[in-house]
Each structure stands twice: as C-alpha cells, then as structure tokens.
Design a protein around this nucleic acid. Structure first.
Lengths: 162, 162
DNA sequence: CACAACTAAGTTGTGCACAACTCAATGGCG
DNA sequence: CGCCATTGAGTTGTGCACAACTTAGTTGTG
C-alpha cells in the first residue's frame, strides 16, 4: 500500500447513517483486535507471571535499561496514575527496583533486578508464537504498524487541537 | 478457515532478539491506537454522556433493536461480567430498559427508551469527525478493517486451539 | 417424573486507563 | 534571597476487561 492522497473526497458523499455503521465497524475492529491480542498474551505470559501491560514495561526496560517513570510513560503513552501501581506490582514480584534519583529527588528511577533481567530469556520465545498466531505475513505486519502509527499520531493531534 | 498459505518463510529467519523488538512495536502500536481512539471518543462522546464502550453497545441497539445481553455480548465479544454493570449504568442514565424475557426467564432483553432512541440523532455527527480525525482515506479504513478482522479471527482461533 | 448437564445473567476480585487531585522538589525571576 | 509556577510521582475515584464463581431457569436422558 502506498501513502494515499489521504483527503478522500468520497467521505463527504457518504450519508450519515452509513458512516455510523462504518464507524461501528472501524472502532469495534480496533477494539476487538486489541483485546484479542491481549487475550493471546494473557495466556502466553501466564508462565512468566506478567500481564500484557507489565510485559510492555519490561520490554522497555530490557531494551533501554534503567530510566525514570516519566521516560517509561512517554515511551508507552501512559501516565503515573497507571504506571505507579503497575511498577509497585513489578517491584513486589521482585522484577524491578524503584529508587529516588539523587540528581532530581522528584524522579524515581526504575531498574531491573537480576531476576527481572533473566526473565528476558524466557520472554524471547513469546513473540514468535504471537506473530505466527496472527496469520499475517511480515509485510502485512509492517504495513499494519505503519498505518496504526499514522492513526495514533493523527488522533493524538486532533485531541490536542481540541 | 486457514486462508493463509502466506506463512512467510522470512519469519523463521529473523533472530529472536529482533522479533522481540518487532513484537514490542506491533503490540504497542495496536495498544496505542486503540487507546488513541478511546481518547478521541472520550471527548466526542462527553456531550452525549457516553463512554466508548457504552457507545458501542448503543450502536448495536440502534442498528439491531431489542436483544438479549448474550446477543450484545456475542456482537461485541464481551461477557456478562463486563456488560451487566455497563447496562445497569445505561439504565440509570435512562437510555435503556432491562426486562426478563417471558419465553426464557434466564435471559434479559435490553431495549432502548425513547431517550435512548433519540440519542441516535445526536450521535450521527460523531463518526464523520472521527474518520476525518484519523487522516485516513476510505480505502485505507476499509483495508485496515479487513486486516484487523483477520487478525482478531486468527488470534481467537489460536487461543481456542490452546 | 427426576436428576444431571447446561445456559444466561449477575457477582467478586484483580488489574489497566485515565481524569483530577495532592505533595514535595525544582527552577526561574523579580 | 524569597516567592511562585512548574514538574515528577503518587493517590483517589470511575469505568472497562476478564477469570472464576454463584444462582436460577432450561433441557435432555434414563
């Protein structure tokens, strides 16, 4: 798929009722797909004792090393209201450490424990299964990612420009 | 329905660590897009007093008329644990009625109140704004929907075939 | 008919998402 | 220096998602 001349003139020609139906399908599709992914991960990650969101946080830590709550939040588009309790649970599970930064006492640096770092080895087997389970080709996955990225960006801007 | 002989041979050639990174991006993209959609709707639906999920339920009722909790759940892939409290909130908001079916006393039929039916008029303006905000063309939206549908189906099967 | 298997809805408990808020540390700026 | 706006993390409250369970109604079978 090429990057289309996105301002489709068709859109304004479609009647409201039809759009309502289409809208149903689009937002529902995305909602459903996201939850289907979540459902798959719930099982795949059960052995590791991680939830889907906790897995995302661990991925960030495995890839980027120790960093502040704010940095993780920016990477995943999550705020402290979501991350604070999640990180506490990861801490109780013995996977991460939380300590106040010395340079800036406001910020808390999250670091992997040895146990958390070791978990990466076991997590390596997860994504291959997931990608296989999607039934999508590598090209489709990359295309999907591209379009979802644009979608997220555009919706984010639309909300900001409120 | 294994329509996918498209099993890309590439996939098995990609190293684990690379897949972990890609996986991060795919599941994160979907997660983020779904939440970006949610964020947009949160604002768009604020005037109507509906949440995103409540809107999905109302769409089903507007399109298909009175039906059981189970039927709504099948349409949206949601179980009673999610729907029961959600429908109670719609009931308190005066948008739906809940009454036991006479034929089968186990099932509860959800029906729109006049107020709920009237809300449809005000909801008609929402999807045009959303589709515009995505910045996607009609073709891209349809393509996205198709691929998400396949994704959801494949992941569902993979989980069932556990 | 009786009883077991099943089904629909609801309840409970855990965790995520997010708005709105508090609180302490920081960084200007007059 | 003193004051105040800003920032990072955490808390509180509401709602969704889902697993596991309960309860009541239904259906199938001997």
């Amino acid at each position: 798929m090429t990057t289309a001349p996105s301002a489709s003139p068709d859109l304004s020609a479609v009647p409201d009722a039809e759009l309502l139906r289409l809208d149903h399908q689009v937002c529902f599709s995305l909602h459903a797909a996201s939850r289907a992914f979540g459902g798959y991960y719930r099982r795949a990650l059960k052995d590791l004792g991680l939830t889907y969101s906790q897995y995302l946080v661990m991925l960030v830590l495995w890839e980027q090393g120790p960093q502040s709550v704010k940095a993780i939040g920016e990477r995943l588009h999550l705020d402290s209201g979501t991350l604070s309790p999640l990180l506490k649970r990861l801490e109780s599970a013995g996977l991460v450490r939380r300590e106040r930064s010395r340079e800036d006492e406001r910020s808390v640096v999250i670091d992997l424990t040895d146990e958390g770092a070791e978990l990466r080895e076991r997590a390596l087997s997860v994504p291959r299964g997931v990608l296989a389970a999607t039934g999508l080709s590598l090209e489709e996955v990359l295309g999907l990612q591209e379009i979802l990225g644009r979608l997220t960006g555009a919706l984010g801007e639309a909300v900001d420009a409120d």
